[in-house]
Design a protein around this nucleic acid. Structure first.
Lengths: 106, 106
DNA sequence: ATAATACGCAACCTTTTGGTTTCTTAAAAT
DNA sequence: ATTTTAAGAAACCAAAAGGTTGCGTATTAT
């Protein structure tokens, strides 16, 4: 289904899950307790995050612990970089649109 | 429809549009030329980006020029910060999951 | 004055999303 | 040995997403 990390973080529940498992490993049930939805719904989100390779998992007995593979977040950071360059360089952001239109006109 | 910036950047076409208008102001028609879709489809994306206050616009005659309000991207950057802290602090990322499970157990 | 162009809006259609309930399997507890 | 618990998988459903075509209006060109 060709999912990417941008789609993964688009959903607010998924973003909340990511924050939860950023610093601790949790099971689907533990996560479901935190949100007002069934475990299966949470599991679906986990599945999506997993497809994006955002998770580490460790099975202990019948429990599965999931944790964020935090390094994968760098992908978003990297995409953002191109804009960061602009907002850091641009002091007079106001009326910038005027100048860039002018540039095109000539 | 309660859209936020994370949903705005979830769509690959929209991400491409954002890059295009980051450094220059463009009209919907000019953008539609760049993508394999109708102007109306592009306009819908623009509408969504606009709802997220990601755009500046300037009407000149019958043309409307859109440009990225680049500062709004800081919102994503800000969200990423909590993870950046972690990936910068964590040298031994491998087997981290083991230690965080252990922490819970005690 | 008339025709052409740029744009936004609305109706419509198909696919994807986010949730549910139900079922099965594997491990743990009694 | 039997029951309970954790979790993934499947079937199903309503709502949202992403696209299309067609229409109305404002501005520009002839």
């Amino acid at each position: 289904m060709k999912r990417d990390i941008f789609q993964a973080i688009a959903d607010p529940t998924r973003r909340a899950i990511l924050v939860f498992i950023a610093t601790q490993a949790l099971t689907p049930n533990a996560l479901a307790d935190e949100f007002d939805m069934t475990r299966q719904a949470v599991s679906k989100h986990i599945k999506i995050l997993n497809e994006c390779e955002l998770l580490e998992q460790k099975k202990i007995g019948r429990e599965v612990y999931y944790q964020l593979k935090v390094g994968r977040m760098k992908e978003v950071d990297k995409w953002l970089e191109q804009f960061r360059k602009i907002w850091e360089a641009r002091f007079d952001q106001l009326d910038n649109i005027l100048s860039t239109i002018k540039k095109q006109k000539k």
